[in-house]
Simulated scan of single mutants.
Amino acid sequence: MLRNEPIFPANRHALYEQHGYSAAIRSGDLLFVSGQVGSRPDGSPEPDFAKQVQLAFDNLMAVLAAAGCGPDNIVDVTTFHTNPEAQFGDVMAAKARVFAVPPYPNWTAVGATWLAGFDFEIKVIARCPIQ
């Protein structure tokens, strides 16, 4: 029987413990990554939107690395935006840096009215080698 394995990036376990969830759960070769936001080391939102998006991607990469995989393993992306029309350019620029060449993962973008003080969040599903 498959057991779910929690994954935590280095130096951020306390943040997840405080809120009662895992950064990601590995189930077999699938990795389900919780929504990652552009939080500074103390957990507060980065006020500059472009930097907040980049931090969210950086935090995502840290979770993937903790699971032994990377952006090439991502198959499904969902992003949440508080003002999609105004934010799309910054999001696309950050996304293009991470997913620079095909094949691209599938992607769903969702407008949201509340992201706990953040303006952008990204969650993914990845297929990663079992370690």
Rank of each mutant, 00 (worst) to 15 (best):
G28P: 06
N4R: 07
F49V: 05
G43I: 06
F57R: 00
K51W: 02
K51T: 13
D119T: 03
G38L: 03
N83R: 13
H13Q: 12
K95R: 15
M1H: 09
M92Q: 15
G20W: 00
A86F: 10
M61G: 14
I7Q: 02
N73V: 00
A14D: 14
M61V: 05
H81K: 06
Q52E: 15
G20Q: 02
P103V: 09
E17F: 06
G89I: 11
S44P: 03
D72Q: 14
L2R: 09
E17C: 04
Y21I: 04
A23K: 04
A14T: 05
T108K: 12
A62T: 03
P9T: 00
P129M: 08
V33R: 00
W107C: 08
G111E: 11
Y21D: 06
S39R: 14
K95M: 15
H13I: 05
S27I: 03
T108R: 12
P47T: 07
S27Q: 13
I125M: 11
F118H: 09
P84E: 13
D90L: 10
V33E: 05
V53L: 09
D42M: 07
V101D: 15
G35M: 11
F99I: 06
E46P: 05
L2C: 04
A66V: 08
I7K: 01
I125G: 01
Q18W: 05
P9Y: 02
D42G: 08
A93P: 06
P102G: 11
D72E: 14
P45L: 01
S39I: 03
F118A: 01
V110T: 15
V110F: 08
W114E: 09
L2I: 10
T78A: 11
I125Q: 09
P41F: 14
Q131H: 13
P102C: 08
Q18P: 00
G68N: 08
E121M: 10
V124R: 02
V37F: 01
G35F: 02
L115T: 02
L2Y: 11
R127A: 08
F49R: 01
P129N: 10
V98F: 05
L30S: 11
F80A: 07
E17P: 00
L15Q: 06
